[in-house]
Lab assay of single mutants.
Amino acid sequence: MEVRTIKVFTTVDNINLHTQVVDMSMTYGQQFGPTYLDGADVTKIKPHNSHEGKTFYVLPNDDTLRVEAFEYYHTTDPSFLGRYMSALNHTKKWKYPQVNGLTSIKWADNNCYLATALLTLQQIELKFNPPALQDAYYRARAGEAANFCALILAYCNKTVGELGDVRETMSYLFQHANLDSCKRVLNVVCKTCGQQQTTLKGVEAVMYMGTLSYEQFKKGVQIPCTCGKQATKYLVQQESPFVMMSAPPAQYELKHGTFTCASEYTGNYQCGHYKHITSKETLYCIDGALLTKSSEYKGPITDVFYKENSYTTTIK
């Protein structure tokens, strides 16, 4: 009895394709271990004539594949690729409408935090270190965002349907971005203890939790000093293409032309909904596939993004 075979390709990165001759009487799992086709788990399936010449994702289970996976995804987590594939199996079914010149995501599976993050990423200057993220990001900007969303979920250790947080998501993504040249110098002034300067680099240099107003941050924000008295913390120097200011959701007025974009969060910790506000020729609110415009805006804002380049204080 002759062994019926077909020729397929296996890959971990969709760049390096490895030619395989597979036995049609055995499952993919018996031949390769966990195997995925377009995100779908085909591990328990036997090869079919229609699979001839198709590319299958496999887990990096030998040295060659491990090197290829690390170079593309910059992670050695053995569960990463499987999590990416199972997320992709959902995100490829989502709709990605162009809204006001940006790629958004039609609401499904509690994905409003991903839509808000995706919209924000198209408006701030950011370059990702893992080629996987950078490639998928370019495709997302062009309207094909399924891979990018699935990668975000995998890097953030999230599953489809789980509630997510924009600030946490951005923080994970910033860790995989090139923020080497970003720098922030802060000064804390206390009447009792004097003053202390701190220099922050990388992710810490672009994120701040405690106030939404970048102007206020430049002037000074009140913080408790270690001595128990009130101290003032203010920005001395900022070198970065953008800054992200966050605070627990509270009524906040966004003035046209003073910011790049913002995240609105309605609801409580267990259950809520994100919308995205962007400042173009007027203010726009993007909620999944829905767009509304207004000249002014007041609502429960939790993150505001500002364009920056270089700032030095005039406070002496």
Rank of each mutant, 00 (worst) to 15 (best):
H176D: 02
N100V: 09
L119M: 04
Q98A: 12
G29K: 08
P34D: 08
T226A: 14
F242P: 08
Y28P: 04
T266K: 11
T211E: 12
W107K: 10
C182D: 14
S104G: 13
K158S: 00
A142C: 11
N61D: 13
A69Q: 10
V3M: 06
G272K: 07
L118W: 04
K54R: 13
E239D: 08
P131K: 07
E204T: 06
L65H: 10
Y172H: 12
R4I: 14
R167A: 01
P97H: 10
F305C: 00
A177D: 07
L118S: 04
T64L: 09
T312F: 13
L235T: 02
V166E: 01
A132L: 07
W94R: 03
H256E: 10
Y36P: 02
Q20H: 14
F174N: 01
L118E: 02
G220Q: 02
Y138C: 14
E52H: 13
T5S: 09
G101P: 04
A154W: 08
L17D: 07
K95I: 11
Q196N: 08
P97V: 15
L200F: 11
K229N: 14
T91P: 08
Y73G: 05
D77Y: 03
L119K: 01
R139D: 12
K229W: 11
T260L: 15
T116D: 04
L126N: 03
D109F: 03
E68N: 10
N14K: 06
V188E: 04
Q31L: 12
Y214F: 09
H273P: 03
E144I: 05
E168F: 14
I277N: 00
T314K: 15
A231E: 01
I124D: 08
M207E: 10
E125S: 07
D135V: 08
P47Q: 08
K201G: 08
I45M: 13
M207H: 05
Q123M: 07
Q195H: 10
C112Y: 04
G210M: 06
P224L: 12
Y234E: 07
F70E: 11
N268M: 10
S279D: 13
Q122V: 02
G220M: 01
G33R: 00
E162W: 02
L173D: 03
Q230G: 02
A117I: 02
F128M: 08
C225A: 02
T11A: 07
N147D: 13
N157A: 03
N61A: 12
P131C: 04
K229C: 09
H256R: 13
C225S: 02
T5W: 12
I105P: 07
K275I: 08
P300H: 13
A250H: 15
D303S: 12
G267W: 15
L235H: 06
Y234C: 08
L37H: 13
D180G: 11
F217M: 07
Q216W: 03
S263R: 02
K229R: 11
T76Q: 14
I15E: 06
Q237A: 12
D38A: 11
T302D: 10
R167F: 00
T120D: 07
T5Y: 15
Q134N: 05
N16T: 13
F32M: 08
G53M: 12
E204F: 05
L119P: 03
T35M: 03
K7N: 11
E168V: 15
N100C: 15
D109N: 02
P78E: 12
A250E: 12
Y113G: 10
E204Y: 09
T159K: 14
E264H: 05
E239C: 10
T312N: 10
V8N: 09
K219T: 11
P249M: 08
N100P: 06
P47K: 06
P131Y: 04
L291Q: 10
Q195W: 10
N89I: 15
V67E: 11
E68F: 00
A87F: 03
G39Y: 10
I301E: 06
L212C: 10
E52A: 12
H276A: 03
S279L: 07
Q195M: 14
E253L: 03
C227V: 02
T282L: 08
H276N: 08
V304P: 01
P60Y: 02
H276L: 09
H51V: 07
T64S: 12
I45W: 14
E125I: 00
H51P: 03
W94Y: 03
E239Q: 12
A136Q: 07
F242M: 03
L186M: 13
M209W: 15
N89G: 12
E68Q: 10
Q237R: 12
T198A: 09
T198I: 15
N89C: 12
M207D: 05
V160H: 07
D62S: 15
T260A: 09
L153D: 04
N100R: 10
Y73E: 07
A177K: 07
F56V: 11
L151Q: 02
A150N: 03
P78N: 03
Y265E: 01
L59H: 15
Y155H: 10
S310I: 14
Q222G: 05
Q270N: 15
T116K: 03
P78M: 08
G220I: 00
C227K: 03
L121F: 11
A150T: 05
V67L: 15
H74S: 03
C112Q: 04
Y137K: 04
T27A: 13
W107G: 02
Y72W: 08
Y297E: 02
R184Q: 03
L163D: 13
L65M: 15
K280D: 10
V236W: 09
T64G: 11
T91F: 01
A132M: 07
A247N: 04
T192W: 06
N49C: 11
A146F: 03
T43V: 00
T5H: 12
Y84M: 09
K280A: 14
T35V: 13
T258K: 06
E239L: 08
V203N: 00
I152G: 01
Y274S: 07
P47W: 01
V160Q: 07
V3I: 11
H48Q: 14
Y265T: 01
T313Y: 15
T27E: 14
G101R: 02
Q134M: 07
C149W: 04
K255A: 11
S295T: 11
Y208W: 00
V304H: 02
I6E: 06
Y36Q: 07
T19E: 13
T75Y: 01
A115Y: 03
S50A: 11
S213P: 04
C193R: 04
G210P: 07
E2Y: 09
L254D: 05
L121M: 09
A145T: 01
Q98H: 08
H176V: 06
V206G: 02
K280F: 09
Y311F: 14
K191C: 13
T232F: 05
L133H: 09
L163V: 11
G29M: 11
R4N: 14
V42G: 03
A262Y: 02
A145K: 07
P241E: 12
L81K: 03
E52S: 12
Q230F: 15
N178I: 06
K92T: 08
C193F: 01
D41T: 07
G288C: 00
N14F: 01
C190P: 03
A108V: 12
T198W: 11
A231V: 06
V12W: 02
Y297K: 08
E253V: 09
P47S: 03
L173Y: 07
V21W: 13
I15H: 15
G210V: 00
A150L: 01
V166S: 01
C190I: 02
V22H: 06
V203C: 09
N111P: 02
V58E: 02
I152Y: 07
K298S: 14
L114H: 03
D287R: 01
I105H: 06
T10G: 09
N129H: 12
A87I: 00
K106D: 13
